[in-house]
């Protein structure tokens, strides 16, 4: 484990905690895309299939359980919690995310490290995570103004995979036969999708103004 990877995991954990804080503190999920949250739950459930079969470390297992539990808890809150679910922007969150699932699965069948059950689902989770933020970014542009916590949530979510890219570069030079081309290319695409958000987030931070995305 290198510092980039650890920083990436902590940033990812912070993003989840910020979202849980937003939902818990404001009892509202306005501005949050349920579709993106459902895609993340699917990403973790399909990526961590090796949770029971392949023990890496306590840290690895604990973090996997945290990500699975938190993503399911957020989906539950937005779908079932009597107060939170009322603030869901149902008519703004209209991205056809099933296409993202289908495309990722087809790509995973074609491009994977090994044509096996776990490997295909692992590749599927990598591809799906790369595009899972799209419904959220579309909702953001439609809903215009963004509350602070939601802005921070998306910022940390985008930053974590950027740190993972540094981790892959580091491992590529430090470890002999390290290759994670699938994760690395998907990670680059994933981070690139946040490019314009990062720009507007920086502008709002520099001008001490509210985060505004152009409609």
């Amino acid at each position: 484990m290198n510092i980039f990877r650890f920083a990436g995991d902590m940033t990812h954990l912070i993003s989840v905690l910020v979202l849980l804080l937003k939902i818990y503190a404001t009892k509202s999920c306005s501005g949050i895309s349920l579709k993106t949250q459902e895609l993340y739950a699917l990403v973790f459930l399909t990526r961590y299939l090796d949770l029971l079969t392949d023990f890496i470390s306590i840290y690895n297992t604990v973090m996997k359980l945290i990500f699975i539990a938190s993503s399911l808890a957020i989906v539950w809150c937005m779908r079932v919690h009597p107060i939170v679910r009322r603030s869901y922007d149902k008519d703004l969150d209209t991205f056809r995310h099933y296409f993202l699932v289908a495309a990722s699965f087809i790509l995973a069948l074609l491009v994977n490290e090994k044509f096996g059950f776990q490997e295909v689902f692992w590749a599927f989770s990598i591809y799906l995570e790369a595009v899972a933020i799209l419904p959220q970014l579309v909702l953001l542009q439609r809903s215009g103004n963004v509350d602070n916590l939601t802005g921070h949530y998306i910022f940390f979510l985008g930053a974590y995979r950027a740190l993972y890219i540094l981790n892959w570069i580091y491992r590529y030079f430090m470890e002999t036969h390290f290759s994670r081309w699938i994760a690395c290319i998907a990670g680059l695409v994933q981070t690139a999708l946040y490019a314009d958000f990062f720009y507007y987030y920086y502008i709002s931070w520099k001008n001490k103004a509210k985060l505004q995305l152009p409609a």
């Binding site: 990877r5 990812h12 993972y164 390290f178 994670r180």
Partner: peptide
């Protein structure tokens, strides 16, 4: 799986 092939990341 041999070590380098395992998915040791999150």
């Amino acid at each position: 799986l041999p070590d380098e092939k395992r998915h040791d990341e999150l």
